[in-house]
Every structure is written in C-alpha cells, then in structure tokens.
C-alpha cells in the first residue's frame, strides 16, 4: 500500500484497451513511473477519499494528476469530478477529462464542475501520444500546485 500513497498519475478508465493505450502513451513519454488505473467511478472515489477498499490509504497523499474518463460504470466521470472539486482537500488536484468526442455539452459541463483540461481520445494513436505528452509536460512538470 505504500505505492498507493505515492501515486503520481491516477487513470480512471473502464475500457481496458483505452487504459492500456493510455499507459503506453504515458510510457512513450516517460511519464508512467507511478500510475494507478481504476475501472469505475466508485473505485475512483474510494481511492481518492481513502474509503471502501482503499481504507487505510494515506488520505493526504493525493495523486499529482487524475485522468478521468467521462463515461464510467457505477458513478460516471462528471459525478466523480464534482466530488473531487467540491472537496477542499481534493479540489486542487488537476483533473484532465478523457472523452471520445468533442460533444460540447460534456465539455461545458466539465468546465462548470471545475475540470482543469480535457483530451479527446483520438482514433489515431500517434495523436493520442502527442496529446498525452502535452498534458504531462504542462500538468506534471510545469504546473506548480499552490
């Protein structure tokens, strides 16, 4: 569980292939040192707030960045986002939305809930790698948390 307290990137993605591709994209950008992948919104909330099956995890140890798929089983991505952004402790964590399309409604809603950025998962993997690189550069290396 030590590892869980030292997470740099949390990926919440129900599609295992998308998750695998995300990991590979991170790896190609040398960003995959400590990545945790969770499969649904409930797990994500348990992990972030150290409850459920993640009871005992150091509460104050937050991931440096969360990649959150919009469409998730059980608790959807927007709901997870709301929980994170409405908590004083967790709302500083940068959350990047992963979405399949640029459906404006989703994006607008995400921004209203306080999302920090979003990445459209392209069909062309090369473009995805590019997007991940840009995201990683900014949020992990350049962006300093207050």
């Amino acid at each position: 569980m030590e590892k869980q307290n030292d997470v740099e990137i949390l990926i919440v993605e129900d599609n295992q292939y998308d998750a695998e591709m995300a990991l590979r994209a991170l790896k190609e950008n040398n960003l995959a040192n400590s990545v945790v992948v969770l499969r649904d919104g409930e797990e994500a909330l348990d992990f972030i707030f150290a409850k459920g099956k993640f009871v005992g995890r150091e509460k104050n140890s937050h991931p440096k960045i969360i990649l959150l798929d919009l469409k998730l089983p059980k608790v959807n991505g927007l709901e997870v986002l709301r929980e994170i952004k409405s908590n004083e402790e967790t709302k500083v964590i940068p959350v990047i939305m992963l979405t399949s399309s640029k459906e404006e409604k989703d994006i607008v809603r995400s921004y209203k809930l306080g999302v920090n950025s979003y990445i459209i998962k392209p069909v062309d993997f090369d473009k995805f790698v590019d997007a991940i690189r840009g995201m990683g550069l900014y949020w992990l290396l350049l962006n300093q948390l207050p």
């Binding site: 292939y17 998308d18 399949s100």
Partner: peptide
C-alpha cells in the same frame, strides 16, 4: 455513437 463506436476503432488503430 460518438463514445461507444469510437472505442473499438481506437483499439483497432492503436493495437
């Protein structure tokens, strides 16, 4: 369509 049809395409293309 935009979400679910795209996921397999991403996988096909990616893998």
């Amino acid at each position: 369509v935009s979400h679910d049809l795209r996921a397999p395409l991403r996988a096909i293309n990616g893998f």
